[in-house]
């Protein structure tokens, strides 16, 4: 067992968004996407802290883009999934799906 903990909720969601956005995922786009799809506005602090934590854990790889004027001459920090990140996401997802299987019907019944 090289890993004992699964992804946290926000970590999981963010990794999914990054996966979906391909090469164009950066802080603001991720946060906006989360807000639009999940319907929950995640605070800036939580978003960025989680992103940095995921980079530190080696699930995400960050690279700098080109500076642009509307960003006050600053570059975007783009994120992509690392192999480790893909693996973690896959495992977490699989674990959840396994747990889910058969439960949807139970929820319907109530």
């Amino acid at each position: 067992m090289n890993r004992t903990t699964y992804l946290g909720e926000l970590e999981h969601m963010i990794l999914l968004v990054v996966l979906g956005q391909g090469d164009d995922a950066y802080g603001m786009s991720i946060r906006e996407h989360l807000g639009a799809r999940v319907g929950r506005k995640i605070s800036r602090g939580a978003t960025y802290m989680t992103l940095e934590r995921l980079v530190r854990k080696g699930y995400l790889v960050a690279r700098m883009g080109d500076p642009s004027p509307e960003r006050g001459g600053r570059a975007r920090r783009y994120f992509t999934l690392s192999a480790k990140g893909r693996k973690a996401l896959r495992e977490s997802g699989r674990a959840l799906l396994q747990l889910w299987s058969g439960h949807e019907a139970l929820l319907e019944e109530r």
Binding site: M28, R44, E52, M64, P67, E70, R76
Partner: peptide
């Protein structure tokens, strides 16, 4: 502390407000 993170976050904030 992290310069790259700071750059990204400052830029995002600026971009958002610019919009």
């Amino acid at each position: 502390r992290d310069a790259a993170a700071r750059e990204g976050i400052l830029g995002d904030l600026e971009e958002e407000l610019h919009g």
